[in-house]
Design a protein around this nucleic acid. Sequence first.
DNA 1: GTGTTTGCAAAGTGTTTGCAATTTA
DNA 2: TAAATTGCAAACACTTTGCAAACAC
Lengths: 146, 146
Amino acid sequence: MPENTKDKERPFSRVVQKLRQVGLRPTRQRLALAKILFDGPCRHVTAEILHDEVSQANISVSLATIYNSLHQFTNAGLLREVVVDSGRTYFDTNISDHYHYFMEKEGCLKDIPRGAINFDMLPDEPEGKKFSRIEVIIHVTEESQK
Amino acid sequence: MPENTKDKERPFSRVVQKLRQVGLRPTRQRLALAKILFDGPCRHVTAEILHDEVSQANISVSLATIYNSLHQFTNAGLLREVVVDSGRTYFDTNISDHYHYFMEKEGCLKDIPRGAINFDMLPDEPEGKKFSRIEVIIHVTEESQK
DNA sequence: GTGTTTGCAAAGTGTTTGCAATTTA
DNA sequence: TAAATTGCAAACACTTTGCAAACAC
């Protein structure tokens, strides 16, 4: 099992930049996570899923670091937190305004395509308050279930 | 501290009925909880809030029983679970179709008045699936905060 | 070198569970 | 009395924290 170091830095350059832009040092751990998260289609992950995936890639990143990184990425605006399930935190790599399906059976999130859902009217913001975000989650079950 | 037993059953009759209707024995604990929950305006509670309130009324109900009861009430259709915050479960005594404000500062839920929010269009249910419920949560912050 | 980041293990939070004792019908 | 319910304490799942060692610049 010879170590493959040849493609160690080059393919990460985009990810390295992304981290640098938000002021996070591109450490081995953060690079591995960022590559999984941002180098491909948008994803919805939990800390545990990420931990499994990074492990499968034979990179060891502790759970504590995964949690730290997820929050750092979120604070930096690279991720968005989605709450569907008390006791489990999902992070969405799609940071644009959009809503979610929650597939009850699989326990996973899917983006609702832009334009597939629309508000006719919204309440007014109360005096001195503002709506910081509007979450819509459509729970999807199998036809047979109630 | 003389025990006050005179008004022990009568004022509970509505609540007793409610429990009986869904097949739950009106025990001392369930009655105390049901009275707090259903005898008055609609509420949003967590297990802890309920525990505090019932304790303040000098009735002792263990947290385990509170959790049990909240789930029993929910399964019986007397309550509805609302997820806003990972790590804390809210129960809503308003079981009609409606949506929520989440007041970030206070960490509490408020119902959005019926008709204040409306969908213009909704996605179609995929083949063999159905939308079991649609959750809308508007996060409300102070004007100054972002 | 200096300040940042990591990883472990321990602590924390909210919730669930097993089971003996108690209560309800 | 039989079956349901309760409460405790222990177990749980997920997340956060403190701190010494390792790392990035």
